[in-house]
Design a protein around this nucleic acid. Sequence first.
DNA 1: TCTTAAAAACAGACCGATTGGTTTGTTTTT
DNA 2: AAAAACAAACCAATCGGTCTGTTTTTAAGA
Lengths: 214, 214
Amino acid sequence: MEQMASQPVARRSQTQRREEMRQRLAAATLDALAEHGHAGASLSVILARAGVSRGAWSHHFETKAEMLALAAEGLLRDAIIAARTLALPLPADMSDPAARLSALLEMAWGRFYQGRHRDLLFEVVLAARTDAELRARLAPIFDAFIGEVGQGWGMALAPSPQRGAAMADLMVLTVYMLRGMAMQELAAGDTPHHAALRRLWVDMLIGFPAPPAT
Amino acid sequence: MEQMASQPVARRSQTQRREEMRQRLAAATLDALAEHGHAGASLSVILARAGVSRGAWSHHFETKAEMLALAAEGLLRDAIIAARTLALPLPADMSDPAARLSALLEMAWGRFYQGRHRDLLFEVVLAARTDAELRARLAPIFDAFIGEVGQGWGMALAPSPQRGAAMADLMVLTVYMLRGMAMQELAAGDTPHHAALRRLWVDMLIGFPAPPAT
DNA sequence: TCTTAAAAACAGACCGATTGGTTTGTTTTT
DNA sequence: AAAAACAAACCAATCGGTCTGTTTTTAAGA
């Protein structure tokens, strides 16, 4: 018997080890970023959280920036998938367009613009601002997210296919509004009034475009 | 003659010197923040830009965080004043409500959500996230900005006083949308389509609330 | 009004701590 | 036995901040 189940240390292939290690380091990078911010997320902090030695780290990444780039890309790609998934269960559920819209809005708010994801989103955007290479890698993913929101959400909510294109722009405006609202909560703390503002937003969307006066 | 006009070094009072120095350092802090980001805005960089020695600096600020707080407060207080000023010239200018709204929107976009101010806004918000004291100092100013936008812009644009309250919420939603749009441009670069999105938003605003069906 | 001593403003060398990254050597997988 | 994965000591550079001493302004006394 070559392999015993009771073996205390699992035998892993090198490709497995490599991928696991890189993922572990990327996750620790995001953790440190969320907890301490860009300035506080030093290599020492990240490695301590991941439980990885400096030597091991240097075998998998050449620079800290490269590791951050991998972590940020993963975060944003996951967000795109989540955006697609979010709109999927909608069509079957409810027929009232206002209720559907409101449900999507609240789900998006909770998933993207509160807590950890919100914090990481802002950290990553700002990190990319003064790091040209990171920016070049993340910019297309940010565009893809907006594309997914426009097409995916637009299709899921439009009453008819020909209304889908118009709906796309409205969905993009919607995530822009949510982002700005998230920024306010990030800076000034949670505001109960924001829930009412989101309902007001839904009212505006379902009333537009206004039916031509008859 | 006690004072000669040709005196090469102007004689300044100590209170003058102090205020000038603190303002100079605050300005250099914002410059460094805008150019290099939070991580790159080290004390050395800031002092080199201000042309101030380390010893002189320590005489005016106890910590770097204190200096950053002063600079950030100044930035945001100026923004509130600018927000008030922005809406003032509107009433006299034009009568078409859509044109007035669009003008305000474009002015706000240019003043707050592009270029240097946009960059500094995001830097400051994120710096406050992991610095409890800075956050405590800035949070009320962020609330005051939203208050100014709601009341000030709402009043300036509402057709009647009783519509002012409803307009206030719409103006707050407007700056939220602009912020989110700014975030997209910060992350993915300028997008020509955004100008069309802003026009679309104006259309939505002037058509709301929809007149009750008769 | 001139003198003078204290206080405030300023300059630059200096400091311990921490940064991102490397080097040397050991263990695990191929 | 070669290569990849891992560990820990090590490194120069930089960080925020302090220390010592000089120049400028201020306030008080003659």
